[in-house]
């Protein structure tokens, strides 16, 4: 934690942008994580291989970073496990109904100026802020 600065945030963001860009060029698809993962769950999806390898790279790259840098390995559990389970269910439902998450809508869609993605991003960030506010008032 001690050596984390906003430069880490900006540098990490640039790496996320580069990874997304490379995946877009290679796959010809918008590589939002919820879509890449969600379509792996559909048996008829024809292009499962790149999706699987992309996510494997994501997990491997993060795991290596946790080993290399203390600031990356920081993990502060915020919620009881039952809340995490409920949160996962809602994130799965919402991202697929809404057609994207923080990467598909937030990074790729906003990056290319797609109006639907800008709307979705404003909505899910706003709703998440209200949710945190209510959770903190109600539970803490």
């Amino acid at each position: 934690m001690a050596d984390y600065t906003l430069w880490h945030a900006l540098t990490g963001g640039i790496l996320i942008g580069l990874g997304s860009l490379l995946a877009t060029a290679l796959s010809g698809k918008i590589p939002g994580i919820s879509g890449v993962f969600g379509r792996l769950l559909i048996p008829a999806t024809p292009d499962k291989k790149w999706r699987f390898l992309f996510l494997l790279g994501l997990i491997g790259g993060a795991a290596l970073s946790f080993l290399l840098w203390d600031s990356a390995a920081l993990f502060r559990p915020m919620r009881p496990l039952v809340v995490m389970g409920l949160a996962g269910l809602l994130v799965g439902l919402g991202t697929r109904i809404g057609g994207g998450c923080t990467s598909g809508h937030g990074v790729c869609g906003v990056g290319t100026g797609a109006k639907d993605s800008i709307a979705a991003t404003l909505i899910f960030v706003g709703v998440a802020m209200v949710t945190v506010l209510i959770y903190n008032r109600a539970v803490l």
Partner: peptide, 14 residues
Amino acid sequence: LAGALFGTGLAVSG
């Protein structure tokens, strides 16, 4: 590699 860049970015950025 694209996935690894993405995952590294997520971890480095906190």
